[in-house]
């Protein structure tokens, strides 16, 4: 039996829908991981130990265990304690928090890398600690952190395939659905790969633009 890609166009609808879900999950989880990363980093660096400790444990949990297990825990496990999340939301939360922890590590490093003189310059003008962080330190740290965080976002896009196992009809699951009807795994996995590649190209182009804009303002 030879390869036959002519079966693919018939399932474009399913695949494009899957692509839409993949993009939606990536954007949702990406935003959560970005803002969550900032919050986690600020807590880790400046929080009282009473708040810092549970976040440290949470970070350890998300960094030290498989993402797949985390998704199962959030989607299936939480039902037992009465939290029944829709698969899409569970996927966004799982992916988002997982990458928020990694982003938080990057942000912490870049906040600590901001020159002490910046802090002193702002404080001597009369800015409070919080104002200095918000207006002076974090904006500079975010600029430094965008390239490595961009790599995390690309990893997040690829790992979004894992949410297929909790039943989100994203690209990978869409391909599987098409395969189960046509028995053509090679063709549809290649088609799905091509779709991922296209999204990835767009994401990378966007990140490059962002980096250029930031470079221009320095």
């Amino acid at each position: 039996m030879g390869l036959d890609f002519t079966v693919v166009p018939e399932y474009f609808g399913i695949l494009f829908l899957g692509m839409g879900w993949t993009i939606a999950i990536t954007i949702g989880a990406g935003l959560l991981s970005f803002f969550g990363g900032i919050v986690f980093a600020v807590i880790a660096l400046y929080g009282h130990w009473v708040i810092r400790l549970p976040f440290r444990l949470l970070a350890w949990l998300f960094m030290g265990t498989p993402l797949l297990l985390q998704l199962f825990l959030i989607y299936f496990g939480l039902i037992e304690v009465g939290i029944d999340l829709p698969a899409f939301i569970a996927g966004v939360i799982g992916l988002g928090l997982h990458f928020a922890v990694y982003n938080s590590e990057l942000i912490q490093a870049s906040i600590l890398a901001v020159d002490k003189g910046q802090y002193e310059g702002a404080r001597t003008l009369g800015l409070s600690r919080g104002q200095t962080l918000r207006r002076i330190v974090i904006p500079q740290a975010v600029r430094a952190v965008i390239p490595p965080m961009g790599n995390n976002m690309i990893a997040l896009l690829k790992d979004s395939a894992l949410v297929s196992v909790i039943g989100v009809a994203e690209l990978t699951l869409a391909a599987q659905q098409a395969i189960s009807r046509t028995y053509r795994p090679f063709e549809f996995y290649i088609a799905a790969a091509a779709c991922y590649y296209v999204i990835n190209l767009c994401l990378e182009a966007g990140l490059r633009r962002l980096e250029r804009r930031i470079a221009a303002s320095r």
């Binding site: 002193e120 310059g121 702002a122 001597t124 320095r218």
Partner: peptide
């Protein structure tokens, strides 16, 4: 009180962003 006390540093400490 710091609002009343201007300070100039050796390394300027302008905000680069």
């Amino acid at each position: 009180v710091r609002q009343d006390i201007g300070m100039v540093f050796q390394h300027f400490n302008l905000f680069p962003h």
